[in-house]
Design a protein around this nucleic acid. Structure first.
Length: 510
RNA sequence: GGGACGUUAGCUCAGCCGGUAGAGCAGCGGACUUUUAAUCCGUUGGUCGCCAGUUCGAAUCUGGCACGUCCUACCA
């Protein structure tokens, strides 16, 4: 076979493309050109009948003699990851959706021409092979190929076969290469899929209804965050990508869907980090006639079930440290959580506004000097204790001023029936008994609007239709949101949120 | 946003005190019928992230810019 071309390959003149052909790509294009001239270059009539994983699980226990006697005919296909040519015989390893299998190609079995053609196939090419299962003398289950076809020519070289792709940026930007090359990456995203499936099963089994609510909101609501702004042409109006589905889901509870959940994306116009992607996946769920204490038990059960189904155990190792989701989750008030790691603070001090203010100033901790007692306690907690809550811990007694949608305690004014769940020092869930008093809700919205007018970019908008819905009557309800990406990070031991999002957002370029 | 570090062949990486570029893998040519990161022989391949500056001379030193990684800040 000749690899010469009569004319030099033209460089890609498309300015949109930053990809130009190097020598390797040019050689592969020449091979493709030959394929086009001699037949169908991208055939789609190969019948793949067997997957590598199934073959291994069914036949790896068989001896060489047993396989010989069975003479099992198979058709496999996949991407060629390894290639070893030895004159009149060759080995190749192909990879399909559930593993790898070795092919043995020899002049004896295929004839000379197909084997000669194979020698010019490149790593990364997608092959279809038919033949008989056998075991090599080292005991590896393989296919003795009688017919071999190149199904898709790969024009670009794969990363080095041993080290694979290690450059983090390229792993994120060209995830397809990462997935081809790195088993760990494939496993992470399979786990992510299983986590979401296990969560969905848990809610369906508890008679929840899965719903979809708008991603385009005329008024962003349900969380304190900066929204993405967009524009609807036909209506000529500003719209916002949703920051949370909360207000729509509670409208559904008003409508009589007493147990609802939604698993979908939220968008927040914030910075990128190892813990933040501008779009992230949350489950939010609402159940009528329940309160926040019920939710805490429910959440523990959910996390345990997901871990058992996905990992087969509740004991997980995160960045070198172990924790057991099977143990009862800790429950602490904000003040107890401060004192747990800083016992020098007395109850009196933690309830002394002036003391808290001076302490926060000394620590150079972020806080709002106009906050009430509860807000300052929360700021101190976030500064001193939050990152230390490695084992699952529910923090309760959030102040009203930072919880505009949560029901206030009947016995303790200023405190809401709310919790946040922290694991490995990260907030992973947020739940509360819902505020269903429309007049109280309206007053809370008005306070948010006042804060927004005073410059708080993350303060909420007033949603009059939501008030109207509450005026029809929201039954006593409990609701919660769980950050799916962070849960998956926990269960896959991922250090960065980018490792659990297939296509994390990156600055354009490179 | 702030700090530290990084960017050299398609990939993984060397490159010292400044003298104009190296290895392995991949590719190409050759040998080889049970290899498995196959092996052996030969060989092609580079805008050293970009732009300035210093210098007789810069991958190397200086400044700026771009992008990334990690830490940090906000959040879920």
């Amino acid at each position: 076979m000749t690899t010469q071309t009569s004319q030099p390959l033209q460089p890609n003149e498309n300015e949109q493309s930053d990809v130009h052909d190097n020598q390797i790509v040019a050689e592969r294009r020449a091979k493709l050109s030959t394929l086009r001239q001699t037949g169908i270059a991208f055939p789609n009539d190969f019948a793949r009948l067997h997957l590598s994983g199934e073959l291994h699980s069914e036949y790896s226990e068989k001896t060489a003699e047993e396989l010989e006697a069975l003479a099992i005919q198979v058709s496999v296909a996949g991407r060629m990851m390894l290639k070893r040519v030895m004159g009149k015989a060759s080995f190749a390893t192909i990879q399909d959706m559930n593993g790898r299998i070795q092919l043995f190609i020899s002049n004896n079995d295929t004839g000379e021409a197909p084997h000669a053609a194979f020698k010019h196939y490149d790593l990364g090419d997608i092959l279809g092979a038919s033949g008989v299962l056998f075991k090599t003398k080292t005991g590896e289950l393989s296919v003795r190929v009688t017919s071999l076809r190149l199904l898709t020519k790969s024009l670009r070289p794969l990363p080095e076969k041993f080290h694979g792709l290690t450059d983090q940026e390229q792993k994120y930007r060209q995830r397809y290469i990462d997935l081809i090359t790195n088993e760990e990456t494939r496993k992470t995203f399979i786990t992510r899929s299983k986590v979401i499936q296990a969560i969905r099963e848990f809610f369906l089994r508890h008679d929840y209804l899965e719903v979809e609510t708008p991603m385009l909101h005329p008024i962003p609501g349900g969380a304190s965050a900066k929204p993405f702004v967009t524009h609807h042409n036909a209506l000529d109006m500003e719209m916002f990508l949703r920051i949370a589905p909360e207000l729509y889901l509670k409208r559904l509870v008003v409508g009589g869907f007493e147990k609802v959940f939604e698993i979908n994306r939220n968008f927040r116009n914030e910075g990128l980090s190892t813990r933040h992607n501008p779009e992230f996946t949350m489950i939010e769920f609402y159940e009528a006639y329940r309160d926040y204490k019920y939710l805490m038990d429910f959440t523990e059960n959910l996390f345990r079930e997901v871990a058992r189904k996905v990992l087969g155990t509740t004991v997980i190792s995160y960045q070198g440290k172990e924790l057991d989701l099977g143990q009862p989750f800790h429950r602490l008030t904000i003040n107890q959580a401060i004192q747990k790691y800083h016992p020098q603070f007395s109850d009196e001090q933690l309830n002394d506004r002036e003391f808290l203010l001076s302490e926060l100033q000394d620590l150079k901790a972020k806080h709002k000097p106009d906050d009430g007692l509860g807000g300052l306690q929360l700021s101190l907690f976030e500064e001193l204790s939050e990152h230390l809550l490695f084992e699952p811990t529910f923090i309760v007694d959030y102040p009203v001023e930072v919880s505009p949608l949560a029901r206030a305690s009947d016995s303790r004014p200023g405190i809401t029936e709310r919790f946040e769940l922290f694991i490995v020092g990260r907030e992973i869930a947020n739940g509360f008994s819902e505020l269903n008093d429309p007049e109280d809700q309206e007053a809370r919205f008005d306070a948010q609007v006042a804060a927004k007018d005073a410059g708080d970019e993350e303060a909420m908008f007033k949603d009059n239709d939501y008030i109207r819905a509450l005026e029809h009557g929201l039954p006593p309800t409990a609701g919660e949101g769980i950050g799916i990406d962070r849960l998956v990070m926990l269960l896959t031991d991922a250090a960065s949120i980018r490792d659990v999002i297939l296509f994390p957002h990156m600055r354009p370029g490179a």
